[in-house]
Nucleic acid binder design. Structure first.
Lengths: 223, 223
DNA sequence: AGTATATTGTTAATTAGTTAACGACTGCTG
DNA sequence: CAGCAGTCGTTAACTAATTAACAATATACT
């Protein structure tokens, strides 16, 4: 019973959740400027969204606004951050420190999202033991045990497609509940493991397709 | 009139386009294994999609299958690649060679998508002149002229949020038609410039929210 | 103090996207 | 040569999401 309610809530607001970070970014700027209240029209203008959409999204965080003035900026910031659990820090493990993995390890912006990569792993002997962006790289074989002992809930996969499934399995069996997958491979995991893919190929496909249509003209679209 | 038709076609198949790379990946594997025909049921099983969905997606590439045997693998590969224009090479400029930009420069996988980063730019004097992954880094001020002269259509933005808009403007004024934006900033550009964002924040927001619900239990969802 | 106005919150309608059902065709087998 | 089984392609229902409209409310101004 509860499960059904939960699912409904989650699915219904997924698109909303995707927009929340953009709101948060804008609100933090406004807050830094000393702005105390902001209206949905203002937000909509800046982010190129309909005011209606903005109100609906904000409503799902539980915040209510004041007519004539708008929403209280600090309160809204706090509400979004707690909604996403970006107020408390979340510790994560990173698997794979090639080009992309190293970049993720060095990315400062994750702090804003309450995310800390506490340990990084690789299977290549050439990389194990090295220090990258302040963290010493451990061998992949240690991931399982450490994740279990440290009660890590979030795993980030930045290994080549070939080994992605293997790593994902190790993470899942270590009790990691959510996986952020930067590899091009589609992962096969039990239902109770949450997976979110950063799919460069899909994104580029959309871009390529739009560009192809633009360059070759509308005639193409009739196919 | 043509425009309306075009828009309809484009919008209607955007979700489809997102799935095409996954099909392509699987098909290339099958092709390497010497498999000549494949059915929508088979593809669906491997990619965890409904066969109906697969057929509909394939239909939009223009390929027709044979009853009882399925789709001709090489033909389908060719069709998807031409549909996305991944058969001919597309030259691109990269702006920003920090952690992420360097990683993109070094990423081999783009070859499969018919994408070549031919030049990389940065505004930091410390980086200009250096050679990263075989390409010499040029100063950002040269981007505009070079893009115009070389008829570059695709720009990749991997600079910090603060300078993203500035770079985007330079690209747009140089006649670049499509921008792949890896920065967290939302770009403000004329309608005729295509923008596709790789939005880490949005992706992580979805993951965080799902994880938050999972960890705190269904009670949370009633809010 | 009263009225006009800007802004919220909710309810309805349109649109896009997915899932399901069904008829048609081809190749295999007895 | 005829029937059967598997697969395609199209049409239709359903679901989710965005967009639009409208009533309610508090603030500011006269």
């Amino acid at each position: 019973m509860f499960r059904v309610e939960l699912e409904k809530e989650r699915v219904g607001s997924l698109a909303t959740v995707r927009r929340l970070p953009a709101y948060l970014h804008l609100l933090k700027q406004l807050n830094a400027d000393g702005r105390e209240f902001v209206s949905s029209t203002h937000i909509g203008r800046d982010l190129k969204l309909q005011p209606d959409q903005v109100r609906k999204d904000i409503a799902s965080t539980g915040i209510v606004g004041k007519p004539k003035s708008g929403y209280h900026v600090p309160a809204l910031i706090h509400a979004i951050e707690t909604f996403l659990r970006w107020d408390n820090n979340t510790d994560a493990f990173l698997a794979g420190v090639g080009n992309l993995g190293s970049a993720l390890l060095g990315y400062k912006g994750f702090e804003d999202y309450g995310l800390s990569i506490v340990s990084a792993f690789d299977s290549s002997p050439a990389k194990v033991g090295k220090v990258i962006h302040g963290r010493q790289i451990l061998h992949m074989s240690k991931l399982r045990n450490l994740a279990e002992r440290m009660h890590i809930h979030l795993g980030i996969i930045a290994v080549p497609a070939e080994s992605a499934q293997e790593v994902a399995d190790a993470m899942a069996s270590a009790g990691i509940a959510a996986i952020w997958n930067f590899s091009p491979a589609g992962l096969n995991l039990p239902e109770n493991v949450i997976v979110e893919n950063i799919d460069l190929a899909s994104s580029l496909a959309v871009l390529s397709r739009k560009l192809a249509i633009r360059l070759s003209g509308p005639a193409e679209a009739d196919l």
